[in-house]
Design a protein around this nucleic acid. Sequence first.
DNA 1: TCTGGGGTCCTAGGACCC
DNA 2: TCTGGGGTCCTAGGACCC
Length: 395
Amino acid sequence: MSSPEYNAMQQSSVQRRIAHLDMDAFYASVELLRYPELRGQPVVIGGRSEHQPIVGANGRRQFYRLRDYAGRGVITTATYEARAFGVSSGMGVMRAAQLAPDAVLLPVDFDAYRRYSRQFKAVVAAIAPQIENTGIDEIYIDLGSLPEETSLLAQRIKQAIRDATGLTCSVGIAPNKLLAKIGSDLNKPDGVTILSMSDIPGRIWPLPVQKINGIGPKATKKLAALGIRTIAELAQADPGLLQSHFGRSYAAWLRDVSLGIDHRPVDTCSEPKSISRETTFERDLHPRLDRALLSEIFTALCEQVAADLQRKNYIGRRIGVKLRFEDFHTVTRDFTLTMHTADAGQIRRAARECLRRIPLTKKLRLLGVRVSSLLLASTAAEEGHAIQQELPLFF
DNA sequence: TCTGGGGTCCTAGGACCC
DNA sequence: TCTGGGGTCCTAGGACCC
């Protein structure tokens, strides 16, 4: 790209000031508040739920170690000490146990993480109210309307979070979400990174393409096959080549992000699109021989989804199921009702119809139930939407 | 010793309608 | 026998994210 073209790109829109705030090793850090004696040790969160620490005869807590674990499950978070052994989130627990057998293993406690999540978001909102939720442990913040100098503002937000929760976070501040997100990762943990468009050649282009939010393992591999490994190489790539391998719209997006271009707004009021529950069985289940158990699990999932909908005040019209077979092949089916519902029985009947359309020839590993095409129940009532009534039992 | 659970967004074909 | 283009909804799958 020629320099005038590049300059034009930089000046093409009004400068925004957007922060991406990412809590450091969030789940693990919350656990360390509860078990401060583990600070400084390799600790991982994950696996199944039976690994609560026990209090020994001497009154001291006894923790499970990774080497004691057998079975399914993945690591959701690892402390930086555990990451030093090569353990990372998404990794199978058994694989992690090979890398760091002495690391402490703790079960996930989502209720606790959600409490801390609400707390840190409330703290930020008191300083900068324009917040987009993007996960339990991260947010985007639109700082545009605040007068304060950028680095002071970042430090003030970080300090307020630390005072209120005892937790640290990393912050990236940039003219758009793409760069803010990359920035928050550049100085982890407990860091602040401020980027402007003029930092792109020096600080963004040397990074590997997978640092871009939206370029995952598949795209990284395809790009590598074309000899493209860094964002600089992506920026220099022939647009025609990219288009022939990735299609027109993804190729155009790749080019934009390689130049640091991203016009997405900070979305401060998003509604959920779907609500689901799924479970991976402790052993693969046979569709016929384990039919009773499967049926029990299936009913429970439908009831949980219905309860989630009701608690969050949503009704949905599209009901879906997800099956994963022993070979990890995954299929989905869904069905659109004529009316919205949050009723467990209605959901179960529709989901049952979906299941009937899947040939069950292999053992099952996972079963899930999903409701989408959601509507806020209160809105629906005001606007007179039809809501599916419970049918008589004999129907 | 494989690979959790909760999501979002995109694509693509077919039905159906104008 | 062959002949449009566009829009929307439904469904299935897949990539990606935390």
